[in-house]
Design a protein around this nucleic acid. Structure first.
Length: 573
RNA sequence: CGGGGCGUAGCGCAGCUUGGUAGCGCACCAGGCUGGGGGUCUGGUUGUCGCAGGUUCAAAUCCUGUCGCCCCGACCA
């Protein structure tokens, strides 16, 4: 029983100055965590109990799915990460250190190599597969900018699993098993979440989904179709337009458009001189970028910006994308800033990409590659030819769902889980093979599945709080019942303790506010801040033999006779 | 890495412009009153004023450097 009289806890009346988001503010105020350095936190008793409750749920579901828990060191030698090139590839995000002899070590940011090598060390037959292993581990990433308290730290607890299969079909099955286990886990954790399709990244892998917990302070933006349920990370959102028959479109015509370097000014001049009704979406924007040193042009409708994240995620193999700067324009005098058109892109040494909304046959107003001139009726496929299509335009609320064409909504969320089919990248690099039934070695295919455990504490706090404080779901709350004893006599304190013991006997975790020196108001405020789901007040009602039961989440209150209290509380579980 | 801001008691902050014995609220300690919504009165404890150097009779305050932290963006998943 957690007794407030001795519990190592000090709640704060004021919000800490450096906390912005609700989870951070409340977890600090309620005495769950304390900051040690940027992105590094200590867990106090209440916080650590909550964290372990989440771990417990995760373990139970992983074990139930038949996955086996292992544990790796957080401190790792350089060699393994050398083989897969991540010692360099991971870059400055990797915490590196040396031992007294000057040998290089790192603090594990993720453990693909270790799992792969562990399986390689033990197994060598197809009969041993499939296999799924997991661990719950502290991970280290030297983030450029840790933020939002526990949500994005430099040290954090993560559950990561890996599946090992001989075949792609086997991998699909393992993937599905993890997906199901994740659904059970997050449901038990009392979280609201969406499963969205995500980019698996440049390194192959066929399927990738993220579990996103919607909340306004989240760092991820995703697209959701409320009518058919389609959900996707913004990077993975698909857009498009069907090809248009351009036979009736008049020939391209170059017109004078003085002082129109922006879409806005262009639309104004068009309407003034060449008929009304032009809008930004009739124009075609030619955004010039440098992708890994090569000049590229990306076409998007004039009323949209290029979303660099989407663009980069959809240009496989490209490491670095940046917008043209003034020196790039100086180096390429054929490209007239503000008046670029795609008609001569290839001549100008550009690789020409178009957003899928710029469909074949569609007609546009675009630059004529001369200062003060634009071209009307520029038809894709007739007047210019793209080298490829790439998702690049920004996604907006109301854009068409790729599945059912209904308008989508855009929402923010915290990524709490990510599952993806890794494929053979690591197995190949580390030479993890098993002998198949024909006696030939086959490279194993892997899946990778993560849950942000410490982040889940914050995400749940984000989704479960009000102006009074935290409000935990039953499974993970630091206690299920918080008994507050008030008054100056011994009686309510004795009764409260008896009730607490009875609840514990019934298997219910209990926090008891048995402080004799705190006023009732302080105790109520603390109880609400701490966020245990059921609050029982033992105090003045005792004269009539009654105690009060409050439901933290709803604020609902009821008085019951003491002899019925235990039963009533158990009914609320 | 770009932009903005902040380092003074456990927490929230004032003091710095104009240099002169370091303050307020909360918390904490002792005692009294109070006892169902962070109550109240009296008395107390708590500080390398982020760090280093400089100017000065004298530096939290002025100067130089440095470290750390927060927010927005870029980056990351």
């Amino acid at each position: 029983m957690l007794k407030m009289s001795t519990l190592f806890l000090r709640t704060l009346r004021d919000d800490p100055a450096d906390a912005e988001v609700a989870s951070h503010r409340l977890l600090v105020r309620a005495g769950y965590v304390r900051r040690i350095a940027a992105g590094i936190y200590s867990w106090l008793p209440l916080g650590y109990i909550t964290l372990r409750n989440i771990e417990r749920v995760i373990r139970e579901e992983m074990d139930a799915a038949g996955f086996q828990e292992v544990h790796f060191p957080a401190l790792l030698p350089r060699e393994a990460y050398e083989t897969t090139n991540r010692w360099t590839e991971y870059g400055p995000d990797l915490f590196r250190l040396q031992d007294r002899r000057g040998a290089d070590y790192l603090l594990g940011p993720t453990h693909e190599e270790m799992f792969t090598l562990m399986v390689k060390g033990e197994y060598s037959s197809y009969k041993d597969l499939p296999l799924s292993l997991y661990q719950i581990q502290t991970k280290y990433r030297d983030e450029t900018r840790p933020r939002s308290g526990i949500i994005r730290g430099r040290e954090f607890v993560m559950k990561d699993s890996y599946s090992f299969d001989l075949t792609d079909e086997g991998l699909a099955i393992s993937y599905k098993k993890h997906r199901d286990a994740y659904i059970k886990t997050f449901d038990r954790l009392g979280m609201k979440y969406n499963i969205v399709s995500a980019m698996s990244g440049a390194m192959g892998g066929s399927q990738s989904e993220e579990f996103l917990a919607p909340c306004p302070t989240g760092e991820d933006t995703y697209v959701l179709c409320e009518s058919c349920g389609f959900a996707a990370n913004v990077e993975a959102m698909r857009t498009g337009a069907s090809a248009v028959d351009a036979n009736n479109t008049p020939a391209m015509q170059v017109v004078e458009t003085p002082n129109t370097p922006t879409i806005e000014t262009l639309v104004a001049v068009l309407n003034e001189r060449y008929g009304s009704g032009f809008t930004g979406s009739d124009t075609l924007k030619n955004v010039l970028l440098v992708a890994d040193g090569k000049n590229i042009s990306v076409l998007v409708p004039g009323d949209r910006e290029v979303d660099l994240k989407r663009l980069q995620a959809n240009l496989p193999g490209v490491q670095d994308v940046r917008l043209f700067d003034d020196s790039d324009f100086t180096k390429n005098p054929q490209l007239v800033k503000g008046y670029v058109g795609p008609q001569a892109a290839q001549e100008f040494g550009l690789v020409l990409y178009a957003d899928p909304t710029v469909a074949t046959g569609s007609a546009w107003v675009t630059g004529a590659n001369k200062v003060g001139q634009h071209a009307l009726n520029v038809v894709s496929g007739r007047d210019f030819h793209v080298d490829g299509y790439v998702e690049a335009a920004e996604i907006r609320q109301g854009d068409a769902c790729p599945e059912c064409a209904s308008p989508v909504v855009i929402d923010r969320a915290i990524e709490i889980g990510h599952i993806f089919q890794l494929g053979r990248k690591y197995a190949q690099a580390l030479d993890l093979t098993v002998l198949d039934s024909d006696g030939k070695p086959r490279v194993v295919t892997m899946g990778s599945y993560g849950i942000g455990v410490s982040r889940a504490v914050a995400a749940i706090a984000e989704q479960n709080h009000d102006e009074l404080g935290l409000s935990w779901p039953m499974e993970i709350a630091p206690a299920k019942v918080h008994i507050v004893a008030t008054g100056k006599e011994d009686k309510p304190f004795d009764v409260a303790l008896d009730l607490g013991l009875a609840l514990e006997k019934a298997g219910v975790s209990v926090m008891l506010d048995d402080r004799r020196d705190a006023s009732p108001g302080v105790k109520f405020k603390d109880a609400e801040l701490i966020g245990v789901p059921i609050i029982v007040v033992v105090g003045k009602g005792l004269i009539e033999g009654k105690v009060e039961i409050r439901i933290r989440r709803t604020g609902e209150r009821s008085e019951v006779l003491f002899e019925n209290a235990l039963g009533t509380i158990l009914n609320h579980m």
